[in-house]
């Protein structure tokens, strides 16, 4: 790993001030990186994918970690909240999806150190992206090697020109709770829907997966459900091995149940698209009675709708039936 300047501010203001250089306004020229748990960034630095000249450690800033109450029964999670802390927090109800997702991430060692914001901002695991010698689209090259290469783990939805999948588990889980993300820079703080935070390769900057600039710091994530007490949620992730792996496909599902009927739903897929993939049309198909036969039929229709636009590559067509199955299983579990 190359040497760098290590900066440890005590406040968000000091952190954003340290990041507010001219070159840091743009990823192409940025030299400083926000440093949290470092479980992805340090790995990238060791393989030479990242060579920052300064790390701004935000982990010791007071008040940037932990869980607090937000409006209307919602919750606010500090950016540096450890994944390990989320694991055991919720065993039922609206926020269950968060603990279930957190439990599936990395290994116990990684979850102890890894932060919530870091999980959202981690870089892709695409085999070509992670190979320093492969100058792919993500790294300023002009080709996505996965497209015509080995693409078992790549995108079936939303791909092109890059076919990475977003590796985050907390992203789909938080989006299933209508989460808002709070971001600061030296000029102030803004909040946006997490749905608007993530980007597709075709949206603009193909080298990034979200709209965060290098001079910005994620401050918190806030759930935004209307009446959380009426919601229930779950996260199902399919991995090649049972632990310590990224998703081949994952489903974050949340349902609002009122008077025995599903009145609102969120379906967000992980591991299949370059960003957490919300399925709005499929969500509408889930609304209605909780009667098993009708629900099974609607679940199957929703699964078909969710994968309608899927365009598998040579080695990843398996993700289509896998994801359909996961979605229907998640629905059965949540309505059993």
């Amino acid at each position: 790993m190359k040497d760098f300047e290590y900066i440890q501010p005590e406040t968000v203001e000091a952190a954003t001030a340290a990041l507010a250089t001219k070159e840091n306004a743009d990823w192409a020229t940025a030299k400083a990186r926000v440093f949290g748990g470092g479980q992805d960034l340090l790995g990238e630095m060791k393989t030479g994918l990242e060579e920052p000249s300064a790390l701004v450690n935000v982990k010791w800033i007071q008040g940037l970690g932990g869980v607090t109450q937000a409006d209307g029964g919602n919750l606010k999670f500090g950016a540096t909240t450890k994944l390990r802390a989320l694991e055991g927090l919720f065993s039922s109800g609206a926020f269950q999806v968060l603990s279930e997702a957190a439990k599936t991430i990395g290994s116990p060692q990684i979850r102890t150190q890894a932060t919530l914001a870091g999980n959202l901002c981690q870089r892709p695991r695409c085999l070509y992206y992670r190979r320093p010698e492969a100058k792919c689209l993500k790294k300023g090259g002009d080709e996505c090697f996965a497209y015509g290469g080995y693409n078992k783990f790549n995108a079936i939805l939303g791909g092109g020109p890059s076919y990475i999948v977003h590796p985050s588990d907390m992203g789909p889980a938080l989006m299933a709770l209508d989460a808002q993300i709070e971001i600061s820079d030296s000029k102030g703080t803004t909040e946006m829907a997490l749905d608007d935070f993530f980007t597709l390769p075709s949206d603009g900057d193909v080298t990034r997966e979200n709209v965060l600039r290098p001079d910005q710091v994620v401050i918190s994530l806030r759930t935004g459900l209307d009446t959380p007490s009426e919601w229930r949620s779950t996260y199902l992730k399919f991995q090649e091995r049972d632990g310590f792996d990224f998703a081949l496909s994952a489903v974050a599902l949340s349902l609002r149940v009122q008077n025995g009927a599903i009145t609102d739903a969120r379906i967000v897929l992980g591991g299949v698209a370059p960003r957490p993939w919300r399925c709005r049309e499929a969500e509408q198909l889930l609304l209605g009675s909780m009667e098993a036969a009708s629900l099974a039929k609607r679940g199957a229709a929703a699964a078909d709708a969710a994968l309608l636009g899927a365009e598998p590559l040579e080695h990843n067509a398996y993700k289509v039936p896998l994801t359909k199955g996961l979605l229907q299983r998640a629905l059965r579990q949540l309505t059993a």
């Binding site: 440890q8 470092g38 340090l42 150190q113």
Partner: peptide, 21 residues
């Protein structure tokens, strides 16, 4: 995981933690 140590009682990867941290 070969570099696992306990930090404040919790297993962590000493290769992915800066000494400064």
């Amino acid at each position: 995981g070969a570099c696992t140590v306990l930090i404040d009682g919790k297993p962590q990867l000493s290769c992915l933690i800066l000494a400064a941290n």
